[in-house]
C-alpha cells in the first residue's frame, strides 16, 4: 500500500494557497512552541498533573483542521493541545487551564486532558483512550438530523484501536451515513508498547471492513494530510458517509513529560531519525521556500512572533487567580 503524499505542484502561483500553507506553517510552529512552554512549566514543577506533548505530530492536527470550518466539531485526546490550538483555541486560556486557573477554558476544572470550547466546536479532550468515539459520532448524528451541514472529526491515537466501542460506532456511522471523520494518529506507540505488538491485521482493514472510505497519509506532510482530510470531509459533508484517515506520525517526547528513559521501548537512533529527517515543520519550511512562498527570514519571523505569543500567554496564566474553593460544587449539574 502506498502512502499518499502531497501534490508537489499544489500551492504554486496561487495566492490563497500560499496564504493557506503559510498559515499551516504558523499553526504548526505555534503548537511546537506551546508544547515547549508546557515542557518548561512541567519540568520546573509549575504545572500540576500530567503533560502529554504533541510535538512531532503537528502536521496531523493542523492538516485536518485546515480542512474544517469553525462550526465543525472535533473531539480530542489526552495528547490534545495541538488539536485545540489547530481548531482555534487561544493559548492564554489554554495555559490558564493547564495551571488550574479560573480563566482557563474549563474554569480550571478540566486541566490538560479535558480542554473543551464550544466557540471553536471543540467537544472536549478525553482522558479515556477511545472515550470520545461515541461523542464525535453522536455529534455527527445530530448534525445530520438537524441538517446544519457540520462535520465531526474524532482524533484518536492508534492505541484506541484496542477499544471495542470504536468498531461499534464505525458500524453505526456507516449504516447511518454520518458526517464523521475518524483520524487515527499512528505515532507508533501505545504508551510504551509498539503498536505492532497490539494490532492484528491492518489498521485500514479495520475501517474498510465496515465500508468506510479509508486512507493512509504521511502524517509529517501537512499538505498531504490536509488534502486527504479535505477529500474525506467533503464527501462526509455531502452525505456520502464517514471516513477514516490513518496519519503516520511520531511522538517526539515520551508518553508524558516524565517518561525520560525510553530505550527499553524505542531507540535514540529512531527518535533522531524522525526529528532530523521527518520533522513536519522543517519539511514544510523547505517546501515553502522551494516554492517561493516564503524565505528563511519570513519563516524565522513567524517563529519569533509565535514564541512571543506563547511567552505572553504563559505570563497571563501564571498571573491569573485560582478559582475560589466555593466553585468546587458549581457545574456538577446544569
Amino acid at each position: 500500500m502506498t502512502t499518499a503524499t502531497s501534490n508537489p505542484q499544489a500551492g504554486r502561483d496561487r495566492a490563497s494557497d500560499k496564504q493557506l500553507w503559510i498559515h499551516a506553517y504558523r499553526q504548526m510552529v505555534r503548537i511546537r512552541l506551546f508544547e515547549e512552554q508546557v515542557n518548561e512549566l512541567y519540568t520546573r514543577a509549575l504545572m500540576p498533573g500530567l503533560a502529554h506533548l504533541y510535538s512531532g505530530e503537528e502536521a496531523v492536527a493542523v492538516g485536518v483542521c485546515e480542512a474544517l470550518r469553525l462550526e465543525d466539531y472535533i473531539t480530542s485526546t489526552h495528547r490534545g493541545h495541538g488539536h485545540c490550538l489547530a481548531k482555534g483555541a487561544s493559548p492564554d486560556r489554554m495555559f490558564a487551564e493547564l495551571l488550574g486557573k479560573e480563566a482557563g477554558y474549563c474554569r480550571g476544572k478540566g486541566g490538560s486532558m479535558h480542554i473543551a470550547d464550544p466557540a471553536t466546536g471543540n467537544l472536549g479532550a478525553n482522558a479515556i483512550v477511545g472515550g470520545s468515539v461515541g461523542i464525535a459520532t453522536g455529534a455527527a448524528f445530530a448534525a445530520k438530523r438537524l441538517g446544519n451541514g457540520r462535520v465531526a472529526v474524532c482524533f484518536f491515537g492508534e492505541g484506541a484501536l484496542g477499544q471495542g466501542s470504536l468498531y461499534e460506532v464505525m458500524n453505526l456511522a456507516q449504516l447511518w451515513k454520518l458526517p464523521v471523520l475518524y483520524v487515527c494518529e499512528n505515532n507508533l506507540y501505545n504508551e510504551y508498547t509498539h503498536y505492532t505488538e497490539t494490532t492484528a491485521g491492518t489498521i485500514l482493514g479495520r475501517a474498510r471492513a465496515f465500508g468506510l472510505e479509508a486512507t493512509v497519509v504521511d502524517g509529517q506532510d501537512v499538505r498531504a494530510v490536509r488534502d486527504a482530510a479535505l477529500r474525506l470531509v467533503t464527501r462526509a459533508r455531502a452525505g456520502e458517509g464517514p471516513g477514516f484517515l490513518e496519519a503516520d506520525t511520531y511522538r517526539y517526547s515520551g508518553h508524558h513529560v516524565g517518561d525520560i528513559n525510553r530505550e527499553y521501548y524505542r531507540s535514540k537512533q529512531e527518535e533522531h531519525y524522525w526529528k532530523s529527517e521527518r520533522d513536519p515543520i522543517q519539511l514544510h519550511a523547505h517546501w515553502l521556500m522551494k516554492q517561493g512562498c516564503a524565505d528563511r527570514d519570513s519563516l524565522d519571523q513567524i517563529a519569533v512572533e509565535a514564541r512571543a505569543e506563547m511567552v505572553e500567554a504563559v505570563k497571563f496564566a501564571m498571573a491569573a487567580p485560582y478559582p475560589s474553593t466555593h466553585q468546587v460544587e458549581e457545574d456538577v449539574y446544569a
Binding site: 466539531y73 467537544l123 468515539v133 461515541g134 461523542i135 464525535a136 459520532t137 453522536g138 455529534a139 455527527a140 448524528f141 445530530a142 448534525a143 438530523r145 438537524l146 446544519n148 465531526a152 471495542g164 466501542s165 461499534e168 460506532v169 458500524n171 453505526l172 449504516l175
Partner: peptide, 23 residues
C-alpha cells in the same frame, strides 16, 4: 433501531445530546 452495541449507541446519544438533540 440500533445494533446490539450498548456502548456505541449510548456514546452516540451523549454526543447528540451535547450538540442539539435530546436523546
Amino acid at each position: 433501531d440500533t445494533p446490539i452495541s450498548e456502548a456505541g449507541f449510548t456514546g452516540i446519544a451523549v454526543g447528540a445530546a451535547m450538540t442539539g438533540l435530546r436523546p
